[in-house]
Amino acid sequence: MDEERKTAAHFLSLIKKSRRGKFKLYIGMSAGVGKTHRMLQEAHTLLRNGIDVKIGYIETHNRAETVALLDGLPLIPRRQLFYKGKELEELDMQAVINLRPEVVIIDELAHTNIEGSKNEKRWQDVLDILDAGINVISAVNIQHIESLNDEIKSITGITVKERIPDHVVSLADEVVNIDLTADELITRLKEGKIYQAEKIAAALSNFFQSDHILQLRELALKEVAAQVNRKVETEIIKPNTLKHERFLACISSNERSAKTVIKKTARLANYYQSKWYVLYVQAPNESADKITLKKQRLLINNYKLATELGAEVIKVQNSSIAQAIIEQVEAKRITTVCIGKPRLNLWRLIMATSIFNVLVKKLAANNVDLVILS
């Protein structure tokens, strides 16, 4: 009976996938590279070729070039809402679904919706529209991808609050990088083609520094290349030639290191389109009465992060962390175990036990890789 249910569920997923709209995503290294401009150009091309394309939401930022490109494109009226005494506008997701255009253009994928909206995030609106069988073209900057958040902060010194889970990017049927050189982007900024005049000086001294742009550009190029490689491996190469990876990220109550392990494992799992898990082993010295409320709260935040990035969270109590890992490896048919680098509490706890050698031997015997993430 279980096998029948699995077979039926698999067939149902195939049906849903075939009915789902196609998703094209433009990625850029920063604001101003031309993502919105390119989407609108594409909309005009589709319209000329008889495709029913409509604008669901475009953010022009009062850029003359962008505003001009809206001319002649059919717009779906935005939803009007009052929030904290102000009238604001949002994408009208239900109107898009009711009108059922062949293609809808939706900008600012990482946008956070106003309180009271059906979904908290615009990317969730886009998924609902795709599920309704409508094709979507959207755009996002590289700094809004969740697992890259810490790296972006280390480059720019800025914590980006609006982010999308990596799996949303992996859902795209086509990912396109909109690329400019650092000099070209800075020239556009100085010419007032990105921000208003009063914001240019601050932008040049902060986010739009040449070395920042070069590093962000590299990240964007790598991200798109990784997505293309993944598509080739999963859709062109015969499935039976692929190793079906299953990742296990092992974390401790150390908030920062746990977050790093979660995000980097998420990227690995996303690349391989794999099932993955996050394991927290509560040893006796980390019982609820022995760690602070702050640590408990941060641990819960990491559970939430893991879930948002597509992981299944496993929490167990065991005096032997290594033994707990072995049990989950066997139970979940794990192919790769991911842990933090040696300075992590988790590593020290494993090393402190005689079962560490058993862990390594057991992983090796089962052809399970051990990856140390830094």
Rank of each mutant, 00 (worst) to 15 (best):
L216M: 09
I15S: 11
R267G: 05
I334A: 04
A331W: 04
T241D: 07
V176M: 07
I134A: 00
Q317P: 09
L12K: 10
G56W: 02
A203V: 13
I142G: 02
L299D: 08
P77S: 03
W276G: 09
E286D: 15
K332L: 02
T265R: 01
L299Y: 02
Y57D: 02
S13W: 05
G28Y: 07
K17A: 13
D131C: 12
V168C: 02
F356G: 10
F207M: 05
L47H: 13
L221E: 12
E223L: 10
V175E: 03
E218P: 05
T335F: 04
E286T: 13
G21C: 01
S18E: 15
E245V: 03
M1N: 10
N206Q: 15
I152M: 08
A139G: 06
A220C: 12
T335W: 01
H167W: 12
I300H: 09
I76R: 04
D92F: 00
I114G: 01
T7P: 14
S13M: 12
Q282K: 12
P284E: 08
N345P: 09
I152A: 05
S320H: 07
E120S: 14
A139S: 13
V228G: 00
T159W: 10
T234K: 11
N177F: 15
I236N: 12
E59F: 10
T66F: 07
E184V: 07
A202F: 11
E233I: 06
F207V: 09
L293R: 13
L359C: 01
G21A: 09
N62C: 03
R333T: 09
V67Q: 04
L214R: 15
A172C: 07
A365N: 06
Q209P: 01
L12Y: 15
I321A: 06
E198I: 03
K22M: 06
K6I: 15
K361W: 02
L91S: 01
K16C: 11
L298Y: 14
S374A: 11
K6F: 11
I142N: 03
V136P: 00
E4F: 12
L180Q: 09
K238S: 15
A226F: 04
E235K: 02
I236Y: 10
K121V: 08
K341E: 15
N302Y: 06
L293G: 11
A324E: 02
E115H: 12
E233A: 07
Q328A: 04
E4P: 03
N98T: 14
V175F: 05
V371R: 09
E151T: 14
Q317A: 06
I76G: 05
V103E: 00
R5K: 12
G116L: 00
R63P: 04
I372L: 12
G28T: 08
V136Y: 04
F247I: 08
I321S: 10
I186S: 08
Q80C: 06
G310F: 12
A139D: 09
Y26D: 09
I158L: 04
R343L: 15
F23D: 05
A311P: 04
Q227P: 02
R19G: 15
Q215E: 08
A324C: 00
N49G: 11
V358L: 13
K54E: 07
F208K: 08
N49I: 03
L349M: 14
A225F: 06
Q41E: 15
N345V: 13
G56P: 02
T292Y: 03
N141M: 01
S205L: 08
L127H: 11
K263V: 03
K84F: 09
K238D: 15
E245I: 02
S319P: 14
D107A: 01
S274Q: 04
L204S: 02
V371Q: 13
K118D: 11
